[in-house]
Structure formats: C-alpha cells, structure tokens
Amino acid sequence: MTYTKRLDGREMDQCREMEAKAGVIGRADGSAMFRTGKTIAYAAVYGPRNLFPRFLQNPEKGILRVNYNMMPFSSKGERVRPGGSRRSKEIAFVTKNALLPALDLSEFPNSVVDVFIELPQTDAGTRCAGINAAAIALADAGIPMKDFVASVSVGKVDGTVVLDLTYDEEAYDGPVADIPIAMLTRSGEVTLLQMDGEVNKEDMKKILQLGQKGINDIHKLQVKVLKEKYQSGE
C-alpha cells in the first residue's frame, strides 16, 4: 500500500492554495495574514519599544520576543485550552530562532521587538504559516532585515514525499514523517528543521529539495503582497 494520490487531489510537490496580506491590524506597527489551505495565521509586530524588566535588556542589540497562540475554536474537533502550553512555548521558541537570523537589530540596543502570532483556524503547518506571516509583518513594521524568511512543511506519507501536509495527511493511517523547514531566502541558510517520524538519508535530501521549491513559491507571494501594500501607499 502506497500513497499515490493525495487526499485533497493536489500534486505531490504542490503547496496548498495560498493567500497573504500585509497590514491587517491597525494598531500594530506591522502586521500580516498568511493562509495556506485551511490554516490561517495572523502576525502582529510591536516595536522596537522599551524593554522591561531591565535585566532582559541587551545593550549590544535589540531582542526579539515571539508569542504563538492557537485560538480555542481553531482546531478540528476538540477545543484548544486557552493560554500557553508546553507545545505553544516550544513553537514560540523555534519560531524566534527561525526569524532572528534574518533580522538586524543592532540599531536598537536595549529595546525589544514583539511578535504575536495568532491562529484562528488550523489544519497542520501552523508554525510554518506563523513564520511566513511574521516575516511579512516584520518587514511591514520597517525593521531592518538582512534576509527574508519563508517556511513550509514537507513530509513523507506512507512512502511518498509530499509538500505542505494537511492534518488529514499527518493523521494518515500508515507511517508518516512531518518535517517543517524554514530558510533564509537569500543565503539559503536553514533556520528551522524539525522532524516528527522517520525518514532515511535519500528521502531527507529529496525533502530538503522539495522544501526549497515550496519556500521559493512562498517567498514570491510574500514579496508580492508587501510591494502591493506600499505601491498603493497603504
């Protein structure tokens, strides 16, 4: 038994239908929405702003704080308990590490840039959607970035390497590996690489190549929505 036809009829190397928009939250300094299939992520960026408590301040450069939250009604079936969890804390941590290499916060000593990622609806790939939205929002906030970040999940469903898994594929009845990847789009540096499940060396190479392809597509969309917003002057 192999996975020859995807559950939602996509090609194996095809992302879900994507949509993005910059500047969706009026009171934030920068914001963005990113949707892939049924997964929707909103990101709001505040700052650079004053950082307290003072012991967190870094006199050499600004720091980045990331908050990740799934809304109670966001998932399939069961209600997500509101508030932080072990999972959300970990995802916030890896998201921060994925975004930070792209930023240049040396101009903002002792200050903080806050990123809030909210997910009103989820269907797998939330950390990737969150990173994509956050990257647009950070650029929208006018924060200096040496590079841009885009992210996608690649996986292996019952022996077949596929791009941008849905929840149904993650829960497929058979061996599944799910590998979220985030890359800097200029340098190609990998800033997020996690794995749930098992793959062999050859498949891992294939997965990274496929991830690169997906990330290129997503980056094009990110650039497009940013330029659209500023060409029309908000």
Partner: peptide, 19 residues
C-alpha cells in the same frame, strides 16, 4: 521596505514604515 533612490553611484532607501 521602502522606496529606492539612486543618486549617481550611491543607493539609499527611503523607509515607508517604522518607529
């Protein structure tokens, strides 16, 4: 993000957002 301005050999960006 910003508008590119070229003056001779020098390139600079006029930012369109930011604190």
């Amino acid at each position: 993000v910003g508008q590119l301005r070229i003056s001779g050999r020098a390139l600079k960006i006029v930012p369109l957002s930011g604190k």
